[in-house]
Simulated assay, not measured.
Amino acid sequence: MTLRPSLLAALLALALAGGADAKTRYVTDPDAPRALPEQGPVDVSWQNPAQFTEIRYSGNSSEAKRGNWVYDLAQHLRQRAQKRLPAGERLEVDITDIRRAGNYEPWRGVNFDDTRFIRDIYPPRITLNFKRIGADGQVIAEGERKLSDLGFLTNANVLSNTDPLRYEKSLINRWVDREFKNPGA
């Protein structure tokens, strides 16, 4: 029996992906988390990612939904804030919108359907609500923050040039550093 190269390639891809049971994870899946597990002084939750600007106005909403990037950004926010939050304080963050850096450009053709083009006209944006609570239980600060970086491509301080969330994580880092000027540790 002779297999066609395209069929062979498809079977190989299926085998590498973990067989027929392999399922792509989407941030909009009904069973996808909407908050980080409660742990430590920083709680992070988020709204329905299907309503995020990233997905609603994407040139390729299927690709924009793919992965676990909302959870990854929430985890990064928690880790960064825990380092800066003074002892005894708590932080509650609700992420209400995300627009990742770059965009899909469907007019480039089917060969580029899953390619995110990073250009200065597509800056990262994150909107969040937060509440900072002191050790005595009193609210120290709260409000909405709209994070954006119009010069994200010229910022030489990106974390890693291979991290697909590097621009959004850098945005989070700058907010946490501004909001919590007094290092906790």
Rank of each mutant, 00 (worst) to 15 (best):
N129P: 00
P37K: 05
L85H: 12
Y122A: 09
E142V: 05
P37L: 07
P37I: 06
K181I: 08
L147K: 10
V44Y: 09
G18T: 02
I133V: 08
A9L: 13
M1Q: 08
D136V: 04
Q51I: 05
V70I: 08
Y57H: 14
R125D: 02
I126T: 07
Y26E: 15
L128E: 11
W69S: 01
L147W: 00
R80A: 14
K131N: 13
Q51P: 00
G40L: 08
D114H: 11
E63P: 02
N111Q: 12
Q138E: 14
E89S: 07
Y26W: 09
E54D: 15
A81W: 00
D43N: 11
E54F: 01
Q138C: 05
D72Q: 15
T162F: 10
R174I: 13
A141H: 09
L128K: 02
V42H: 02
E38T: 07
L7M: 11
D136N: 15
S62T: 09
I133H: 01
Y26H: 15
L16I: 13
S45C: 00
Q75I: 00
R78Q: 11
A87G: 09
P33K: 01
S62A: 13
K146E: 10
A141W: 01
A101N: 08
R90E: 14
T127S: 13
A74P: 04
K23D: 05
P123S: 03
T53V: 08
Y122P: 07
L85F: 06
I126L: 15
A15P: 04
N161Q: 12
N129T: 02
G67W: 08
Y71L: 13
L85P: 11
L14I: 10
G88H: 03
K23Y: 00
A74N: 04
Y167Q: 10
L7Q: 11
Y57V: 00
Y26K: 12
P164F: 03
A185C: 10
D114E: 10
K169A: 05
R108Q: 14
L77M: 12
G184E: 03
V139M: 02
V70N: 04
V139D: 05
H76V: 01
R166Q: 14
S58M: 03
S148F: 08
E89K: 09
T96W: 04
V70M: 04
S160V: 00
V44W: 11
F152D: 00
R174N: 14
E89C: 06
G143E: 04
E54R: 05
L159Y: 07
R25K: 11
F52K: 03
D163L: 07
I95K: 00
I98Y: 06
Y71W: 11
A17Y: 01
Y26T: 09
N155H: 13
E179L: 12
F52W: 01
N103Y: 03
Q39S: 15
L165W: 05
I121C: 14
